[in-house]
Design a binder for these strands. Sequence first.
DNA 1: GTTGTAGTAC
Length: 654
Amino acid sequence: MVTLSRKFSTATSDSLACISLKQFPQNPQKPIPFYQIQQQQPKQLESQIVTTLDGCKNLTQIKQVHARILLNGLDQSCYVLAKLIRTLTKLNIPMDPYPLSIFNRVKYPNPFLYNALIRGYLIEESLNESTEFYSLMRKEGVVPVSFTFTALLKACGAKMDVGLGRQIHGQTILVGGFGEDLHVGNSMIGMYIKCGFLECGRKVFDEMPNRDAISWTELISAYAKSGNMESAGELFDGLPVKDMVAWTVMVSGFAQNAKPREAIRFFEKMQEFGVETDEITLIGVISACAQLGAAKYADWIRDVAEKSEFGGKHSVVVGSALIDMYSKCGSVGDAYRVFQGMKERNVYSYSSMILGFAMHGLAHDAMKLFDEMVKTEIKPNRVTFIGVLTACSHAGMVEQGWQIFELMEKCYGIKPSADHYTCMVDLLGRAGRLQEAHELVKTMPIEPHGGVWGALLGACRIHKRADIAAIAANHLFELEPYCIGNYILLANIYASCGRWNDVSTVRKLMRTRGLRKNPAFSWIESEKGMVHEFFSGDMTHPRSGEIKQALEDLLDRLEAKGYQPHLSSVSYDVNDEDKRRILMTHSEKLALAFGLISTIPGSKIRIVKNLRICEDCHSVICGASQITGREIIVRDIMRFHHFHDGICSCGNFW
DNA sequence: GTTGTAGTAC
């Protein structure tokens, strides 16, 4: 066997280099099939013991079989011992010392035994041990076989060690290439993808003499995860036989890339083609419905889920996804009904429900559910605490928030992450304790990320604190220079303080960085389940005339009751009349007016907005709920607002 | 007749 380590040890320095089949001899040495490596055929007794091992459920049983192995003089049988080690691995027995000692007593370990060890270390995530035993194997002159490579490539992927991955790539080619064995080629693609070298994975794919659905799907998934749905789609189109997994990758890919409509379209197509659906497909499409926030789709997918054999009530995974979806569609009641109907619950079910309550400002219910949860066997995780802290923050429960924050590490061993600090800064900031919030950011033991400073900046908007806002914004401009929202927020804060010179400085900064405002838009469902989108200032909807009329009527009635436009919500230095006009065409007001004229009187109006709701729209919708007697539910980027009879569930605190 | 590769939610 030729050692290539010298040749490939520099691979990391040239990060884009990829190994090509063409660099290697056309007639490489064939790998030795395992049946020739094996010294002798297993005897009947050996096969018997292997079958017994398959049925072992615990360590005691395995130890009994081990004793039987020794009694029968099979202490050097790699066939039996490899199975023994694998059985121990399955039960999550640590490799050191028991399985390792079994290996160490064998004089001539074969590739199967090495493989059992390498894979065992891989499973317990001792990746260095995993690769070290590979080196030992090579040193001892044991010829690796295909499944040694697949195990090792997995370890390289987990370690993100593309250097070692490339060495193995070279070796696999020398022993015959993966033309002989699809699994090795597929693992190679997987390794490059996990190391972040998508194009190298693509190259392997392009050069592979044979491919199967797994090769295609790996790449499609990688493109989807990197946000490149175009390349994913092209590959998908070229895939000769599209199976359930490939379709699922496309559905969840669109969902992950905030393209819920495409995700739903693909799911429908998938059903038209008669492709089966399983839990994982359902999760993707349910998550898409959650993003869309449309109640019609929510009920539709729930039906689909309940009709499938992986259906709603029977699956803890699908059930948890449904809870999240109903919460995000504004129906926290339906979410709770799903939760109550579930036979089995896990940490996802509880966390989704707690987050659902939090989003809707139902802090009391969130806390109650958390108390219920800690009485069960299910341990809360970091996300659960984000839910509980968010609940406190949306209800202004500062003291309870602090208590939970301290409890987290003391009682549950969860170190607060930057995301948890974000919740705390938000909690303190909203409550007007900006100095404390700023202090917390400065003294936190981990590096604050954009979210933490963003929460501080958001709090400065509520309490009009331009001084602290400038500090937070400066950090944000460094951490996320292309995030437009921060510039706009700072400009709005300056505007609300009347500091127009500072407003134009921020605008100039945006221009020099080539940033353009993200358009604000809202969407609403009509009776027929159609989703209508409204951009701010956009009067291109076919019923624009009626919408404008309805809006003017509404504002007239409100003004008669004492409503005054919040002119400070406009961050342009224009006259009051222009400000009034700009406010008139905010996207959520257009959606509201459309809702009033297009839905059955008395029914709920649900609006989703891509940004945070502004103060003026908030008070207009509040008033509208009173005059019209309609219940109006608005989901903004942060949370839900339930408007009913002139009162909002957020208590004017958001 | 020992072994390995692709997709999932809070």
